[in-house]
Design a protein around this nucleic acid. Structure first.
Lengths: 189, 189
DNA sequence: TATTGTTATACTCTATAACTATA
DNA sequence: TATAGTTATAGAGTATAACAATA
């Protein structure tokens, strides 16, 4: 049985990693593992409904949500994939007969992607699966718990958006306490 | 610029998806997107340090954390990958000269994986990068914010662990309000 | 010159099944 | 019989670079 208590790091963590924060690393580990567990469960359920990759299904959902054909690069932006990956995903979907490509009426560089027959059905069966999975996964949290969570997560994303366009700082080196002695930098001290 | 305000769903959401919960779906969307944004930033930083896939690095971190050679299936369990995938990941790492395989002393079915020379160095450079990324990503949250977050996430994972071993419930069908009229089930009513 | 999309290449990871050898 | 690991195969996604067409 998987242990689902909070993930924690050792007490001497901040000694070992100067500049790091114990609570931040614990937060990050719990965030990533929880999202991962949710996606795993979601995937399990989605695959019972239709054998599509997550990206492929996301693409369909984006198109359906837009309610109109979209240019390839618009989908790629929302999906956070490169144009080359987008081409590959659309190839897969087109092969399955779920989307179609057509010429953009005014800008001839662009290709408009539209849902094909059959795709609407898949989306209509898949979305309830996704939302039921969410309802069940968060069943133990009260409405106010959920609101707290949503706002905390949004604040993290705001910070991450700033970090993503900056050059990362150089971290202080690890100071290992166990077994292996720290490597003496030749020339220091 | 990416919008980092909370992700919300439309007001008529619960009408459209009977049995779904607006706050739960919003929580799920924010959870997944936030984890994704963090992993994106983490990957960006990791790749500046060493050109390893996330799985490959995780494998090294697991081995280093264990402090002793581990059998392949032990790593596979923690990494949540199949034995075939594990073989492939270890092949990659071995090709890069970062791990070695050796025979298990008592159980000849097993193969012990150990860190090779050079791997320790990579782990020592990578972990500070990971933890600094966490510190920066969560910089706007107070210690008590972080503790709240960690406990909420753990409760979600606990629920997910239960769901993962159960047969998923059948979701109620979508009731689309816009554009396309709901498909009338022939024979109903 | 910048944008849109495709093609080509090579690599990583995944899933599945069949297989060997052990226990 | 069950477990540990490998091999084989096929598919999906990624990154990168080069490229054509168009704006």
């Amino acid at each position: 049985m998987t242990d689902t208590s909070p993930i924690r790091v050792p007490p001497d963590f901040e000694r070992e990693f100067p500049g790091a924060s114990r609570s931040a690393s614990e937060s990050a580990a719990n965030l990533v593992r929880t999202a991962d567990a949710f996606l795993l469960e979601l995937d399990r359920r989605r695959r019972k409904t239709a054998d599509l990759s997550a990206s492929a299904f996301e693409t369909l959902a984006i198109l359906e949500g837009a309610g109109e054909p979209l240019a390839g690069h618009v989908i790629a932006e929302r999906l956070l994939v490169s144009s080359a990956s987008m081409t590959s995903i659309l190839d897969t979907l087109e092969r399955h007969g779920l989307v179609g490509r057509s010429a953009h009426p005014t800008d001839r560089r662009k290709v408009l992607i539209h849902l094909a027959d059959g795709a609407q059905d898949i989306v209509d069966r898949m979305l309830p699966v996704v939302h039921l999975a969410a309802a069940e996964a968060f069943a133990d949290l009260s409405e106010s718990d959920r609101e707290v969570l949503i706002l905390l997560l949004a604040r993290i994303r705001t910070r991450l958006a700033l970090l993503s366009s900056a050059t990362p700082r150089e971290p202080a080196p690890r100071r290992r306490s166990r077994r292996v002695p720290p490597k003496r930098n030749p020339g220091s001290r």
